[in-house]
Amino acid sequence: MAIETNQIVSLEYEVRDGDTVVDSNLGAAPLVFMFGKGQIIPGLESGIQNMAIGEKGDILVKAEDAYGVHNPDAKQEVPKDQFAGIDLEEGMTLYGQGEDGNTVQVVVQEIGDESVIIDFNHPLAGKDLMFSVTISNVRDASAEEAMSGIPAENKQEDGCCSSSDASSSSCGCD
C-alpha cells in the first residue's frame, strides 16, 4: 500500500556521497515527518512512496531532486569585518539569518585581506546521493497534526523544560 499525503512516516536512514557516509540516524531516533508536505528532499519522498512498514531499500536521489545542482553564481564577497570574533577557516560552515528571517547556511570559500567569499550552495548541492532506508512506521495523522503539519513526535511540550519535571527523561529536554 502506498504512503499517502498527510500520513506520518518514521524512517531510519544512512545517506552516502559515493563511499562517504554524510548523514545517518542508524541506532538513534527515527526521522519522523508528514508525507507530501515537502519536509524531506523530494527525491527521497518519491522514492519511499511505495514502501511499507519494515521494508528496506536503497534509493538513488539525483542532485536536482536532493539539494539542487551546484550554482557557480551563488557566491558573495563580504567585508571581513562582518566576521569579527570568528576564527575563519576555508571550508568551514557558518549559519546566519537571511533577508526572509530563515536560517541560511554558507561555506567559507576564500579568505582575503579585506573580504571573505562565501558560497550559498548547500554542501551536498550537485551531488547524487544514495539513501539506505528502513520504514519504521506509517500512520494516519491526527486532526491536530494535519492542521499544524507537525508530527506529535516532533512537537515540543510548552513549558516542558521550565517545569519541575525538567530532569525527567520523559520530558525530552535533558
Rank of each mutant, 00 (worst) to 15 (best):
N102G: 05
N102D: 13
T103W: 05
V104K: 03
Q105R: 15
V106F: 00
V106S: 04
E110R: 13
I111M: 02
I111D: 01
G112V: 09
G112W: 02
D113E: 15
S115H: 04
V116N: 03
V116P: 03
I117A: 11
I118E: 02
D119G: 01
D119R: 04
F120S: 10
F120G: 09
H122F: 12
P123C: 08
L124M: 13
A125C: 08
A125I: 12
A125T: 08
G126N: 04
L129N: 08
F131N: 06
S132D: 07
S132K: 09
T134Y: 08
T134I: 04
N137H: 10
V138I: 05
V138N: 00
R139A: 10
R139M: 05
S142Y: 07
S142T: 15
A143C: 12
E144V: 14
E145Q: 07
S148Y: 07
G149T: 06
P151G: 10
P151S: 13
N154R: 00
E157V: 06
G159A: 02
C160I: 07
C160K: 12
S162Q: 13
S162K: 11
S162D: 11
S164I: 01
S164L: 15
S164A: 15
D165L: 07
A166E: 07
A166S: 15
S168Y: 07
